[in-house]
Design a protein around this nucleic acid. Structure first.
Length: 521
DNA sequence: AAGTTGGTTGATAGA
DNA sequence: GTCTATCAACCAACT
């Protein structure tokens, strides 16, 4: 029996390494590739740069599908409202999609799958957003997510390398598959413009990172050609404030699924083959494993994007200070390094990982003592690669709320950037009003004598703000506050130890068996 | 079971 | 420019 099939694109906006799409093409007579603009996920609060990236990715996908004599159908509304109508209208018999571990997605997909069942529609989903089946990693760790990178590494080492990616469908795969075309479909299911999403494109800067699978693969090729660079890549050695990105900026493409993490992984393996190369955690393979690490945590730890009711998150009495939060968000802290980073973030939608460290530390435990949840919201809005699991995990890391605990190591908003940009060229690029300051004052313009400020054409307090905090004093005070939060944490844990243990496995895990074997030998 | 080890990416001073 | 000790002393996992 030949199926009428909907393939539902959500993340995974690509044709390559798309196992669910390939499953859709099996025994299929009619295929409807669908994308739904979900008001929960694609509301107007999501930044304009991200929306532009999404629209680019959808256009690219539609273009690739048309080359296969198909097309993309874009719909709007809550998926649980949209699907029953589609099931009836198109007489659908099969629904396929890529598995998604986010809490909202799991709830959504459960609803849609049960509606599909009611309509007699088969549901098939495949894992291809992550390197591994995340649940399997947790299982291997006795039902608990590993809380250290080392532990995750041990588990995936025993699981073996990730699955090999599968090729994109070809015209041959599409031979017996039709996508019904109709004049009225063209307008009804077309990709929206920014204006239709109530966004004004006059606020947009140059499109440095266009969305889409083709651009993702082009960018991957471009970087994989740099054999020496790839093999010697060490993330901590890359610069947060170079004038053009010091890393690949493939993250937005992986976030939206324009690039498969497994495709990236295996391309790296090819480049590494027979050559001396760096290793996790600092290598490019290592970066993909960090993603896997935070995905695993986000699945295994309840309330992962919150402080309250989050069992791994240190409870901290963060301040509520709307003025300071706004100053941080809007790049008016008076610290040029911080403000330049926040400007780049807003304009371009991407900043280097270490730049994220600097501004995240500044907002939370370092200076402003504002909750990491506030920073998380701003990043989700502005980052092209804003990813629910990675954003929550990294904010907890940087605020020393979980995973990272050496809270006495505080980034200096003045000294940190100087290591890789002594002249402050990065600051001058993003804060051009400071461009005439001499290098010795560019990181702390308030220290420049009045005459220097006048010569630079920028008076601190008038043209550029005074620093909103005194870093030296406030960071010392904050270290003490962190110390108290940790002390309270351990005393609370002693009173009522948190049951962190997971479900006992019926069968021993691969790791347990391996450890037994090692003990025997 | 208590003590040890290591932790992707701190800042600073001094050799 | 590179390296090391110091600052204070965290947690998770391992032994």
């Amino acid at each position: 029996m030949a199926h009428v099939c909907i393939h539902w694109f959500r993340k995974g906006l690509r044709l390559h390494d798309n196992a669910a799409l390939m499953a859709a093409l099996k025994d299929c007579k009619e295929l409807y590739p669908v994308f739904i603009l979900d008001p929960y996920l694609h509301h107007t609060q999501v930044g304009i740069n991200r929306q532009r990236f999404l629209i680019g990715a959808l256009k690219d996908l539609d273009c690739s599908l048309r080359k296969l004599n198909s097309r993309l159908f874009v719909l709007r509304g809550k998926p649980e409202d949209v699907f029953p109508k589609l099931f009836n209208m198109w007489n659908v018999t099969k629904l396929t999609y890529e598995y998604d571990t986010e809490p909202y997605s799991l709830r959504r997909d459960e609803k849609v799958a049960s509606l599909a069942k009611e309509h007699g529609v088969d549901v098939i989903y495949k894992i291809s957003h992550t390197l591994y089946n995340i649940e399997r990693i947790i299982e291997e760790n006795n039902g608990k997510p590993p809380l250290t990178y080392k532990r995750l590494q041990a588990i995936v080492q025993n699981l073996g390398p990730p699955k090999k990616p599968i090729p994109a469908p070809t015209l041959e795969n599409m031979r017996d598959v039709k996508t019904p075309h109709s004049e009225k479909y063209e307008d009804k299911y077309r990709i929206p413009t920014l204006e239709e999403l109530q966004l004004d494109s006059k606020f947009l800067g140059e499109e440095l990172f266009p969305g889409g699978e083709q651009e993702a693969l082009r960018r991957l090729d471009e970087h994989m050609k740099r054999t020496g660079w790839v093999c010697s890549f060490e993330k901590p050695q890359t610069s947060p404030n170079s004038l053009s990105p010091s890393t690949t900026v493939l993250s937005p493409y992986v976030t939206f699924g324009c690039l498969s993490a497994r495709t990236f992984w295996w391309r790296l393996t090819e480049v590494y083959r027979g050559r001396k190369h760096s290793d996790p955690p600092v290598s490019l393979h290592g970066q993909l494993l960090w993603r896997e690490f935070f995905y695993t945590c986000s699945v295994g730890i309840p309330n992962f994007n919150k402080m309250n009711q989050n069992p791994v998150c240190t409870q901290v009495d963060w301040d509520t200070n709307q003025r300071n939060l706004a100053a941080w968000r809007e790049a008016r802290t008076g610290f040029p390094f911080i403000d330049a980073i926040m400007t780049q973030l807003r304009q371009e939608g991407w900043i280097h990982h270490l730049a994220r460290h600097a501004v995240a530390c500044f907002l939370t435990r370092g200076d402003l003592w504002i909750s990491w949840e506030e920073g998380q919201k701003v990043f989700e809005d502005l980052l092209l690669d804003g990813d629910w699991a990675l954003n929550a995990g990294n904010w907890q890391w940087l605020s020393a709320s979980a995973f990272f605990h050496q809270f006495f190591r505080v980034y200096s908003p003045i000294a940190f950037g100087k290591k890789t940009d002594k002249n402050g060229d990065y600051i001058k690029k993003y804060l051009p009003l400071l461009k005439k300051f001499p290098p010795q004052y560019i990181y702390e313009p308030w220290k420049a004598p009045r005459s220097v400020q006048q010569a630079a054409g920028c008076i601190v307090g008038k043209d550029y703000p005074h620093p909103i905090v005194q870093h030296e004093q406030i960071s010392k005070k904050n270290i003490q506050r962190m110390k108290e939060a940790y002390a309270k944490r351990s005393s609370d844990n002693n009173e009522s130890p948190i049951k962190k243990q997971g479900v006992k496995r019926k069968t021993p895990s691969v790791i347990d068996m391996l450890q037994k074997k090692i003990r025997k030998e």
